[in-house]
């Protein structure tokens, strides 16, 4: 059987992106379930030693395509390398981060290979499938699980007949985990000239401004998150006040981001960031499944909502029925008076 492949994104600073390391960790688990190996693909420039950031997460093989034309990322050369490499190696599974790059690249590759691709998976598992009509059983498929359609349902998607089984996953959904190093890891230097030609470089980047990540809510211990129910950008200031006092970060639901209350980097959920804090204070968030997918692993959840029936209350440890602008100042007041 063939292996699990992970496309490793290279950051501005020349490192392997965190989402790729998370996918390697998950890829290792899937590979173990299937009794196969894990291979990584890194495409960029000045990649000497890049395997040091990949092998600790369980890869057996690292394919490296190093060429000065391969950074910054452009679609066509990266796609050409992956398509040819996948045709040669015939991966069982191929995983990509659901980033600006992954969501641009993976569909192009999937189309060329005519294989199935599922976007923004919140869970990946191995399982069997029986096609009732044909009476045919498929062993060890990749279950690609994602909320769908307004978030009222969770869909399990499979690709019975095509390989690789491809999926994209958002940052933070999978946990980064170190694995014992493979006994004989292989670094395969790809001969780039055999994989790309001049025609792949017709799109030219003439200007770039990439900022370092300013907001980092993924690793916050305490998160104060607001939804559409917060009501306005001004009301969000209360959340920042509480976050300041508690040493927390401010997060938001998609509805609050779409309404323009906060910046997109703070969005928590299926199409945002997944968080696992000690405490999650949900202010005016109703709790659609896409949002819960990004926060339901918090150790403790407090919901502040005027609606006793809000779905988020059902997963909350504490539900405070009330207005955000009444509750938060009281929390701040008590904390200021009583914390050390």
């Amino acid at each position: 059987m063939n292996n699990v492949f992970v496309y490793c994104e290279i950051t501005e600073e020349g490192h392997v992106a965190e989402v790729s390391q998370e996918l390697l960790s998950k890829g290792r688990k899937l590979a173990n379930d299937l009794g196969i190996g894990l291979e990584a693909v890194a495409i960029g420039t000045k990649l000497d030693g890049i395997e040091k950031e990949i092998l600790p997460y369980g890869a057996n093989v690292v394919h490296v395509a190093d060429d000065k034309r391969l950074f910054p990322f452009t679609t066509l050369p990266h796609a050409a390398i992956l398509v040819k490499l996948f045709e040669e190696q015939k991966p069982e599974i191929a995983l990509f981060g659901a980033t600006s790059i992954g969501r641009d690249l993976a569909p192009r590759v999937a189309s060329a290979l005519r294989c199935g691709l599922t976007a923004d998976c919140t869970s990946l598992e191995i399982g069997d499938h029986t096609e009732a009509k044909a009476g045919k059983t498929y062993k060890n498929l990749l279950y690609q699980i994602r909320p769908a359609f307004g978030g009222n349902i969770i869909a399990t998607i499979i690709n019975p007949d095509t390989r690789p089984q491809m999926a994209t996953v958002r940052e933070g959904v999978m946990k980064k985990e170190l694995w014992p190093a493979a006994s004989n890891p292989v670094v395969n230097k790809i001969d780039v000239a055999n994989y790309v030609s001049d025609e792949h470089f017709v799109v030219k980047i003439i200007e770039r401004h990439i900022e370092a990540q300013k907001i980092n809510i993924k690793n916050a211990q305490v998160i104060v998150a607001g939804g559409y129910g917060v009501g306005s950008k001004e009301n969000f200031n209360l959340l920042y006040d509480l976050a300041d006092v508690l040493g927390a970060q401010v997060g938001a639901s998609r509805a609050a981001v779409d309404a323009g209350y906060v910046e997109h980097e703070r969005q928590i959920g299926q199409t945002g960031i997944t968080v696992r804090p000690k405490l999650y204070i949900a202010c005016g968030i109703s709790g659609a499944v896409q949002h819960r997918a990004g926060m339901d692993q918090a150790s403790m959840i407090i919901s502040i909502n005027t609606d006793p029936q809000a779905p988020i209350n059902q997963i909350a440890d504490y539900t405070i029925i009330g207005q955000v602008h009444e509750v938060i100042p009281r929390m701040i007041k008590y904390y200021r008076q009583n914390s050390k």
Partner: peptide, 22 residues
């Protein structure tokens, strides 16, 4: 190539939630 294997309605894992006033 992609097939929908199953669709599930979302079942919330209900916690013992303490309800408080403001």
């Amino acid at each position: 190539p992609t097939k929908v294997k199953k669709i599930e309605n979302v079942v919330l894992q209900r916690k013992e939630s303490k309800v408080l006033t403001a």
